[in-house]
Design a binder for these strands. Sequence first.
DNA 1: CCGCAAACATGACGATCATCATGCTTGTGG
DNA 2: CCACAAGCATGATGATCGTCATGTTTGCGG
Lengths: 187, 187
Amino acid sequence: MRYPEAETAEKHQRIVEAAAALFRARGLSGVSVSEVMKAAGLTHGAFYNHFASKDALIAEAIAETTKQFLDGLAAVSADRAGLEAYVTTYLSRAHLDAPGKGCVMAALATEIAHDPAAKPSFTKHFNILLTAFLSRFPGKSAAATRKDSIQTVSTMVGAMVLARATDDPALAEEILATVKHGLTTAN
Amino acid sequence: MRYPEAETAEKHQRIVEAAAALFRARGLSGVSVSEVMKAAGLTHGAFYNHFASKDALIAEAIAETTKQFLDGLAAVSADRAGLEAYVTTYLSRAHLDAPGKGCVMAALATEIAHDPAAKPSFTKHFNILLTAFLSRFPGKSAAATRKDSIQTVSTMVGAMVLARATDDPALAEEILATVKHGLTTAN
DNA sequence: CCGCAAACATGACGATCATCATGCTTGTGG
DNA sequence: CCACAAGCATGATGATCGTCATGTTTGCGG
């Protein structure tokens, strides 16, 4: 290779991180390859030295967001209090307003559903993410925990997705607050 | 006007219905104006006699899906059993596999969130839809009912959105079945 | 019965985009 | 120390798309 291997790998990572942020902020179809490369400090020509296609970039970007998700989970304790802290952070105004730094599911779910090339990567990482979430659920049997995880994740994602699709800040906050309350007091 | 008014109105409606189906099936950015017109039995040139822009069509298409949503709600009884029947239908494999005929929220939520022109229409119709859902919730106070509606809708939408983003049919069905069970036995 | 304008079709325009072609630059393997 | 190829930039290409221009048809108001 012509450039130091470490440097090349770092640029690759920068591209993936820029893509992960831009895609979540503006959608898969709302961001061009050129924009991603510019955000990574390169020009569009170098793109195909790193990825076979935009679809390949999307797949890697999804993987990157999963790493970030796991970091967020790791920051809370593995008990009921930690879970509630996580839910509270997830359903916060900060997350609502910063989709580029937030959950992939809440930012891109329906676009992924319409993009056959993105679904395999999403599916793989959704499984990882569910397992991680599950491992931090306190008590009960493994089966019950998995069910609880699926329900809790569905509710969190649905709330954020609806709040984001809304134009009215008061309504968005009502959705988040209501679901937050429901998830942190029930069970 | 040159064409009979009724005929023109009918064509307008055909365009909106075709758009509502195509957008939900393949996404806002995945469907071109020409495709919608062809599906409505016209050519692309006539489009701007009916709509000011693609954004305007999107807004009307969202309104159309809301009408369809309300029809679905009206089909069940206004009690606990009716609510559970509705949830069961919503979280069915038939709905999973037919996004073009299903809920807008589950089909387009994240794309709407990324499209400033679509958000006002969505917000307006989300309010309508929430009110209708609420009016069919049995018992309790109005405030509690609104909270229950928001939580239930969030969970249903989240589950469908995640199931649709998934490549693995078994996982998709697990999500639907789990959330369906949670919503029809709890409370 | 006539002229006007609405509705529709064909076709064009300009912009955007993913991808590829080409050439330069530069470090690494030999 | 040298040749090769990886990595990057500039620029081109072909396709798609939203929108507009133009011409034609045809029913409605007068």
